[in-house]
């Protein structure tokens, strides 16, 4: 049953991710990116990471997408201005990188090392205390410095956005 849902969600994820780069209208790309984010949240649920799944929907499919849409509307290329600029080396470059990545994935599949070592926090152990509580217990004790540094990162985002957009500071 899990395999069925995994395959279903994985296929939706891959197809919507391909649509993001294939679709010509940037708004359509953004909408398929929303679908990609939602299906990744589904994959997180299958991995027993319910808290991360909720965050994925709230932050990525919600907040980050609002930001993306505003950027698209800021740039707002009208149809006649959407001329695709093609560099002569573009295609060769893209194909060689794709082949390189395919080789990397292929070598991992061929050597059969698809699974890493199991961590100490198993799904049964986490669900005994609760998903959010398990994350919180680690985040606010062992990982308190990265947590505090996150606030520096966020304040840098605020200051950066204001400095870039305000005419007179």
């Amino acid at each position: 049953m899990t395999l069925f849902f995994f395959l279903l969600i994985a296929i939706v994820t891959v197809i919507s991710a391909i649509l993001v780069i294939v679709l010509r209208n940037p708004i359509h790309s953004a909408l398929s990116l929303v679908l990609t984010f939602f299906s990744i949240a589904g994959l997180y649920i299958l991995l027993n990471a319910q808290f991360i799944a909720a965050i994925q929907v709230i932050v990525y499919a919600g907040a980050i997408m609002v930001l993306f849409l505003f950027v698209i509307m800021l740039l707002n290329l009208e149809k006649e201005k959407r001329v695709s600029e093609k560099h002569p080396l573009q295609k060769a470059f893209g194909v060689s990188i794709a082949l390189f990545l395919l080789g990397g994935i292929g070598s991992i599949v061929a050597t059969g090392v698809l699974y890493g070592n199991m961590g100490t926090e198993t799904a049964a152990k986490v669900s005994a205390v609760g998903n959010t509580k398990a994350i919180a217990g680690l985040l606010f004790t062992d990982w308190v410095l990265p947590f505090e540094i996150t606030s520096i990162l966020l304040i840098a985002a605020i200051v950066g956005a204001i400095v870039l957009t305000k005419k007179e500071l």
């Binding site: 609002v66 930001l67 800021l74 959010t132 304040i155 305000k166």
Partner: peptide
């Protein structure tokens, strides 16, 4: 073209959204 003011508001929203996200697990423990 939309005014860039919308973008700053969206940026502030993202930042304080993430702040609220961190408050959830903190409130649990």
């Amino acid at each position: 073209r939309l005014s860039v003011k919308f973008y700053i508001v969206a940026m502030l929203f993202v930042v304080f959204d993430i702040e609220a996200i961190f408050l959830y697990p903190w409130a649990v423990i």
